[in-house]
């Protein structure tokens, strides 16, 4: 059981194909759309907003970057129309939205592979397991140099570069590495600006960092990406478009979402924007360095949007988190 609203529409649940939507946007549409949230999703939404301006030039779209948590703070009091999120909504945020009467539709827009990177001159690390990462990143871990991780590696001190704690990227990494109860060590360099992380790791022989794969793809020449051992396949997998989409790059590939306020979606300009997001989003997501979702997921999401199916797929009635791959959880 997941926390779903009631089916508003009386129309039988028919799957609508994406191509049926194409075209016909009313270029005389006016109004404004406020979007805020994750810096990871920002490049996609920015691209969609830019292209949308060509179709509906009078609609004023603003896209902010406050981090997933910061975005939900504004979204759940009704300050924004759409919230970018690099993780599903949390139960606290959900409750706050309900409290303020903000109903929303959850729409996955792309996959992101969280890439773990080291310095170019780091020749010893050829792959890492989640357990290795635990040794490096967990709070209270005695590991100080690479030698402490594996005795065959040199005694170069480890320097960690991490996204800020308000980012969905950090939340996601923490959940995979530290689980529900653990915590990530605090003696690391933290920045909300992924570019600072790139520079940090690139300039530090013992550096290690993590961020969305788009930033790695942009900076391939400066960084070395570490293949991560898939716990089920027991094989080290490098993040690429293929491995992220087919799910073998686990456990560090994750879906990205936009949350659309139901009330806002009733406004024609917001409705048109979201429709446009469905139509152009997959292509633009690829253009800015992410991986498109399977067609079937887009179809399900579109169905949810058209029928006004509100709520999240990631929380049970009791507010417990639901885990699992997007294809299983999202319907």
């Amino acid at each position: 059981m997941s926390k779903h609203g009631i089916f508003i529409s009386s129309v039988a649940a028919t799957t609508i194909s994406l191509s049926a939507l194409a075209g016909d946007y009313d270029s005389s549409l006016r109004g404004s759309i406020k979007i805020d949230g994750s810096s990871t999703v920002y490049p996609i939404t920015e691209a969609v907003a830019e292209e949308f301006a060509e179709v509906c030039p009078r609609v004023r779209v603003t896209v902010g970057i406050s981090g997933t948590g910061g975005g939900f703070k504004r979204f759940s009091v009704g300050e924004t129309d759409i919230s970018d999120a690099s993780r599903p909504i949390k139960s606290k945020e959900y409750d706050k939205a309900v409290e303020n009467g903000v109903d929303f539709i959850e729409i996955p827009v792309a996959y992101d592979g969280l890439s773990i990177v080291v310095n170019k001159s780091n020749h010893w690390v050829d792959q890492l397991t989640v357990d290795d990462l635990k040794k490096i990143f967990l709070d209270g871990s005695p590991v100080k140099t690479w030698k402490d991780v594996r005795s065959s590696w040199p005694a170069v001190p480890i320097a960690i570069y991490s996204p800020g704690t308000d980012s969905g990227t950090f939340d996601y990494f923490k959940e995979v590495v530290a689980g529900k109860t653990g915590s990530i060590r605090s003696d690391m360099s933290v920045s909300e600006d992924d570019n600072v992380l790139v520079r940090g790791v690139a300039g530090d022989e013992g550096g290690i960092g993590f961020f969305g794969c788009a930033y790695y793809f942009e900076n391939k020449d400066k960084l070395k990406v570490v293949p991560i051992v898939n716990p089920e396949l027991e094989k080290a997998i490098t993040p690429t478009a293929v491995t992220i989409e087919n799910g073998t790059y686990a456990p560090f590939s994750r879906p990205l979402f936009i949350y659309v306020s139901k009330k806002s979606a009733e406004r024609p300009e917001v409705e048109a924007f979201v429709r446009f997001y469905f139509e152009q989003g997959p292509e633009l997501a690829e253009e800015v360095g992410y991986v498109r979702l399977p067609k079937e997921i887009y179809a399900r999401a579109l169905n949810n949007f058209v029928q006004g199916k509100t709520g999240t797929h990631y929380l049970t009635e009791a507010g417990e988190k639901i885990h699992g791959p997007l294809t299983k959880v999202y319907n």
Partner: peptide, 8 residues
Amino acid sequence: AGIVFIRF
């Protein structure tokens, strides 16, 4: 204002 993408 925050960092915002604004085209108008």
